[in-house]
Simulated assay, not measured.
Amino acid sequence: MLWIKALHIIFVITWMAALFYLPRLFVYHVMSEDEISRERFKIMERKLLRGIANPSMIAVFIFGAWMSWLGWDYYSTQIWYWCKIALVSLMAAYHHACVVYWKQLRDDHCTKSHKFFRVFNELPVFLLFGIVILVVVKPFQ
């Protein structure tokens, strides 16, 4: 179980790193004024999303589900666990929103401003705070 937990945490960290950086790339992409820069950001965004964010999210769900399955008798009765699952679901929705914006930027159809993406970039921080507090403190136990 500890190996599964360790791998889960490692992939949570890589997923969060990608979700913190991808919208920051969107800020710079939207602010870029020349075609060479925009094409460079398209490449960076694609590599970050496909090479790190997507595989990390999949691994988080695999190892998280595995841990949940192994400890189902405990987890299924814990309110903090279900709150965590709700926040993780919101994080997955945020990831999906990043994919939508990435496709818009890739196809030169995005209408969002750099100010929007600066605010959008902060949202996963709040989700991460909630998730970590629920897992470590277990306030509803």
Rank of each mutant, 00 (worst) to 15 (best):
S89D: 11
T77A: 12
M57H: 09
D108H: 13
K103H: 15
R50G: 15
V119D: 10
F126E: 04
D108T: 07
Y94D: 03
S56H: 00
Q104G: 09
G71W: 11
H109C: 15
Q141K: 15
A59V: 04
W102T: 09
R38F: 11
R40S: 14
W102K: 11
Y75A: 05
W80E: 00
F26H: 01
H114R: 12
G71Q: 07
I9K: 07
I131L: 01
F41E: 00
M91W: 06
R118N: 12
V60L: 02
Q141L: 15
V125S: 11
Q104F: 07
R38N: 09
L70A: 13
F63W: 03
F120S: 01
Y21L: 10
I133P: 01
W80A: 00
F120L: 02
V12N: 03
V135F: 05
S76Q: 13
L105P: 00
I62F: 07
S89F: 10
I85E: 05
K138V: 04
A86I: 05
I85Q: 07
Q141A: 15
I79F: 09
V132N: 03
Y101V: 04
M57L: 13
L22W: 03
H29N: 04
S113C: 07
V60T: 01
F26M: 07
I133T: 01
I79H: 09
R50N: 13
W102R: 11
V27M: 05
I58N: 05
M44L: 14
F41L: 06
L7S: 08
F126R: 06
R118W: 11
V60M: 04
L48Q: 04
N54P: 11
I43M: 14
I79P: 05
I36A: 14
P55M: 00
P139V: 01
E33N: 12
E45T: 05
W69M: 12
T77Q: 14
A17Q: 02
I4D: 01
A6M: 13
L2A: 15
G64T: 02
L127G: 04
E45K: 03
V88M: 04
E35Q: 11
F120N: 03
L22A: 06
V135D: 05
D107I: 12
V135I: 09
E122A: 11
K138R: 08
A93D: 06
V27L: 05
C83R: 10
Y81K: 09
I43C: 13
I131A: 00
I133K: 04
G64H: 05
R118P: 07
Y75H: 07
A6C: 15
C98L: 09
D107Y: 11
Y21Q: 08
L128E: 00
I10P: 05
S37P: 07
R24W: 10
F41S: 00
H114D: 15
D108I: 08
A53D: 03
P124K: 02
I43K: 12
L25E: 03
A59M: 06
L70Q: 14
I36H: 15
I58Y: 08
I13V: 07
W3H: 15
S89C: 10
L87G: 00
S32R: 04
W3E: 12
C110G: 06
K115F: 13
V137D: 06
V88E: 01
K112M: 04
